[in-house]
Design a protein around this nucleic acid. Structure first.
Length: 311
DNA sequence: TTCCAGGGGTAGA
DNA sequence: TCTACCCATGGA
């Protein structure tokens, strides 16, 4: 089954999908040779699908553009999505796939104010003018919280390993290729003993945090998805996120970014090292000094830092 | 062996 | 609010 998504220009699909590290975490994948974003997704009906997303015009397999057939608006970029298995996808499931991919790729976010402000900075504008800033996120906040917890006090290499094992050992298999799995649901994680997360998934002390969060969601004690609907103010959101065990100052700010609020910087060892090197001749910088570097970017501090750091 | 990596919880002040 | 200490894991 094939479907289409659109977002406003400028939008550099290939760069945007790869700009944030989440692309290296299962069950997401970037297929370089075909410039395709691949994701195994478990739908609310329980069906597990593989979605492959490609920018229209880059459709190597088809060799033709769907653009003319689907929109003639020059201000819009079209993405083509191939879904497997193609059979028996209901209208509801199709809508869910569209909504989840749009959320993951942030196709509905309005970055125009960011681009306006970025034009005042030569270095930043040169980075983002072709349409970057829609950093990849997961289809559920639960997955983003778990992944963020897996980035704390560890190396990126170990984070990738933890998430890969979580997906392989606990996620639902993709029927057409059982070696591929979706990200586990709270039910699937809550169903195993915390010792499994420690000994098999090797989450270390994070095991208790991840298991507890899954249990809270399954029991109805916590509803993460209500934090995604934009009804809370940023301070309210942050307070709520920090009530999750394992989520502290860094993780909460990182999650705010993932939810589309870029005014807070997630200070971690990576940011400290970058700012120290770039702005303080390698001398250690105080947190207040780091924050002051990006202060002028106001609502867009995180994106300003991000494209500064990966330049 | 020791240190520490995209930190956080807790106790005690 | 701040500090000291502890928390698994694995690579350097």
């Amino acid at each position: 089954m094939r479907l289409h998504l659109t977002t406003s220009k400028p939008y550099d699909f290939a760069a945007s999908v790869q700009d944030y590290g989440w692309i290296d975490l299962a069950p997401c994948q970037w297929l370089e040779d075909v410039q395709t974003f691949q994701r195994i997704e478990r739908l609310s009906t329980g069906k597990v699908v593989k979605a492959r997303v490609i920018a229209d015009g880059n459709d190597l397999a088809n060799g033709t553009s769907d653009q003319a057939a689907h929109n003639l608006n020059p201000g819009v970029v079209t993405l083509v999505v191939q879904v497997e298995p193609a059979e028996e996808i209901t209208a509801g499931e199709r809508a869910e796939i569209e909504a989840n991919l749009s959320w993951m790729l942030r196709l509905d976010e309005d970055l125009e104010p960011f681009y306006q402000q970025a034009q005042n900075s030569l270095w930043l504008w040169s980075q983002v003018k072709n349409g970057r800033g829609r950093l990849l996120r997961s289809s559920t906040l639960f997955e983003d919280v778990v992944k963020t917890i897996c980035t704390t006090n560890t190396t990126w290499r170990q984070t990738k390993g933890m998430v890969a094992r979580l997906v392989d050992l606990l996620g639902s298999p993709f029927p057409l290729d059982p070696s591929l799995h979706a990200f586990p649901t709270p039910i699937q994680i809550a169903a195993v003993d915390p010792s499994f997360l420690q000994e098999e998934v090797r989450l270390g002390y994070r095991s208790a945090y991840v298991h507890r969060l899954a249990q809270e969601i399954v029991s109805g004690k916590r509803d993460l998805e209500v934090l995604c609907n934009g009804n809370l103010t940023t301070p309210e959101l942050k307070i709520e996120l920090k009530t999750i065990k394992g989520v502290g100052e860094y993780a909460a700010n990182n999650l705010l970014m993932l939810l589309g609020t870029y005014s807070h910087l997630a200070l971690d060892s990576e940011m400290r090292a970058f700012v120290s090197e770039r702005y303080f001749d390698g001398r250690p910088a105080a947190d207040a000094d780091i924050l002051s570097i990006y202060e002028a970017w106001d609502s867009w501090r995180y994106l300003a830092y991000w494209f500064d750091s990966i330049a």
